[in-house]
Amino acid sequence: MGKGTSDSGGVAAAGSASSAGAWLGAIALVGFILVATAQASNQILARGLAGSVPPFALAFFRWSIVAVGLAPIALAEIRDGRLALAKNIWPILAAGFMGMFLCGGPVYAAGVSTTAIHIALIMALSPITVLLISAVRGMEHVGPLQWLGTALALAGALLIISGGHPQTLIELETAAGDGLVVIAMLSWSGYTLLQSRAAPRASLLARISLFAAAGALFSLPLAAWEMWTMPAQIFSVRALAAYVFAGIVPGLLAYAGFAWLGAKFGSVRTSLVLYLGPVASALLSFAILGEPPKPIHFAGGLLILGGVWASLRR
């Protein structure tokens, strides 16, 4: 009798654990899709506005909304002593310059001459760049599989940027937008390496608030010039809607969602969002902008994502 009761209890516990695991898996899948979509929406915004809202004003207001929205978290951790501004001011400014300023206005400017799919696929090269920088600095060993992955991803990027015609790589008119995205991708890679070293005792969201404030500060001079020369484009209903959307969806929601996924599932699993980004961007680009992916995007995307996958293997 006791043994039977024990067995049935064990079965019930196993069933409960299985059910909880299934729910956790479903939550993870939904979370990854939502965060990837929120991140990809910034690329759709860059392409959809296509210069109708000046880029650095858009970046300034976006980062200002993020900084203000997360300010209560940052202020609480400053009061608690977890976030020491005096000791971390230079790393914070550097992270804001690379991760917010160079990955803000230039990406919006790039949307005038390149597609959202191009932006997403080029930005997907960031993990490989981080790996190579880490290898050069002796922080990471790069083996044959990683070098192969790097070569594949680079080939995919060049294929997409050139449109299958290598001679266009030297034509600045053709590759101007893609060149801006390459700069943003390299800057994001530097930010990735630096952000965890700036105020390491503070939470991710508290640090994001300060990085965003720094990004808004760096964007301000160019944004002020745009406000002076193009006031009608900046102070309009369309521009206001863009500022609010950029600050909330690819700003607060994307960063908060990424932080939640990292805390719930770990940084390694959370990095899978990277693989969903280009897919989300391609789908949104087709649905919203009417820009379907071309065969060259599939070929280049497979090379890039396959290269990223190989580069992240041990």
Rank of each mutant, 00 (worst) to 15 (best):
Ile183Asn: 10
Gly164Cys: 01
Arg269Cys: 13
Val30Asp: 00
Val66Phe: 15
Lys294His: 08
Val142Arg: 05
Gln167Val: 04
Pro250Arg: 04
Leu132Glu: 04
Trp260Tyr: 15
Met139Ser: 14
Gly81Ala: 00
Ser16Asp: 15
Ala151Asn: 07
Pro144Phe: 14
Ile92Ala: 09
Gly51Pro: 02
Trp90Ile: 00
Gly247Ser: 09
Thr129Ile: 03
Ser16Asn: 15
Ser16Cys: 13
Gln43Phe: 08
Met123Ile: 06
Met98Asp: 09
Phe298Asp: 13
Ala299Asn: 12
Glu77Arg: 01
Ala213Glu: 04
Gly138Ser: 13
Arg47Val: 03
Ser6Asp: 15
Ser187Phe: 09
Trp225Lys: 03
Ile170Val: 11
Leu312Val: 13
Val273Tyr: 05
Ile133His: 07
Leu312Thr: 14
Ala94Cys: 11
His297Thr: 08
Lys3Asp: 14
Gly81Ser: 01
Ala13Phe: 05
Ala124Cys: 13
Glu140Val: 01
Val30Asn: 01
Ala84Lys: 11
Val182Ser: 08
Ile304His: 09
Ala246Asn: 05
Ile119Glu: 11
Glu226Asp: 06
Ala224Gly: 09
Asp80Glu: 04
Gly156Phe: 10
Ser219Met: 02
Ala184Cys: 06
Leu205His: 06
Pro106His: 12
Tyr108Glu: 06
Pro166His: 08
Leu253Met: 07
Trp23Thr: 02
Ala224Ser: 11
Gly69Asp: 15
Ala216Phe: 01
Asn42Ala: 11
Val53Gly: 08
Leu205Phe: 05
Pro295Glu: 14
Gly149Ile: 03
Glu140Ser: 09
Pro91Ala: 12
Ala95Gln: 05
Ala95Lys: 03
Ser162Asp: 07
Tyr275Glu: 10
Pro127Thr: 10
Thr174Ile: 12
Thr150Glu: 12
Ala151His: 04
Ser281Thr: 05
Leu145Met: 14
Lys264Tyr: 11
Trp188Lys: 04
Ala110Phe: 08
Ile183Gln: 09
Gly4Thr: 03
Asp7Cys: 10
Ala153Gln: 12
Thr150Met: 06
Gly190Asp: 02
Met185Tyr: 10
Gly290Ser: 02
Met185Trp: 09
Ser281Met: 04
Ala40Thr: 06
His297Lys: 06
Thr229Trp: 07
Arg137Val: 09
Ser196Trp: 12
Leu312Pro: 12
Ala109Asn: 06
Gly215Tyr: 04
Gly215Ser: 01
Pro144Ile: 09
Gly104Arg: 03
Leu158Gln: 12
Ala157Gly: 15
Gly300Val: 04
Ala232Gly: 08
Leu29Asp: 11
Ile208Ala: 04
Pro106Val: 06
Ala246Cys: 02
Gln233Met: 04
Phe56His: 06
Ile288Cys: 10
Arg313His: 15
Gly104Glu: 07
Phe265Lys: 00
Ala74Ser: 06
His118Asn: 13
Ala59Ser: 10
Gly156Ser: 14
Ile128Lys: 00
Ala13Ser: 11
Gly48Asn: 10
Pro127Ser: 14
Glu291Asn: 03
Thr174Trp: 11
Thr150Asp: 13
Cys103Glu: 10
Leu93His: 12
Trp188Ile: 02
